[in-house]
Amino acid sequence: MFNLHGYGPSILQGTIVTIAISLASLALAMLLGIGGALSKLSSSKPLQIASQTYTTIIRGIPDLVLMLLVFFGGQVFINQVAPMVGYEEYIDINPFIAGVSTIGFIFGAYMTETFRGAILAVPRGQLEAAYAYGMGRMKVFSRILMPQMIRHASPGFGNNWLVLVKTTALVSIIGLDDMVRKASLAAGATRMPFTFYLVVALNYLIITSVSVYILKWLETRYSMGVIKA
């Protein structure tokens, strides 16, 4: 259907980079999300304030500004700090690390909210019952809280994932070879920007559609024990 003038494999490589960035950022976001949710619900005041500040700041600032701040600001920061610990050479920030850490950091905030809601949706009585049986904190988390949390978190989680995949397009701006950047290189060489950007758009549609399919399956899997009206 599309004549890609031999740039097909290059776009495909970019697609793989896009998926890799998405998954790596997702892993980071989930870690931060769990941590954030537990600190929001903890009884420690400093933890509560820290996690509240984190989510408020992230939701107030555009992704692109944060990414540019991490990419350019991080560069300056590292090169100011490195000589202090005795490292003299100039350090270049890897755009992959800058991209993944920014996106992970941003979506960690959204995941925090999702997980917090999911934890609150698990009835307290069940946790109390588990403690009464003599289960330890870890066991209560892995056997009682986690399995039910996944069910409550899955719609919000799915949404976050879909937005995250689309946000990865921004890494092309800081020079990472994802599919958007591959497309712009190909577009420059062939003077067919419409074709290439459309192909990339369709690739995103495929990724999101497949994700929606998997998420649906996951949701059914984890709500097996729930009676639907």
Partner: peptide, 12 residues
């Protein structure tokens, strides 16, 4: 992504 939509319009 919005970025790609914008590129399609502006460059495409």
């Amino acid at each position: 992504p919005l970025l790609v939509q914008m590129f399609i319009v502006y460059y495409g």
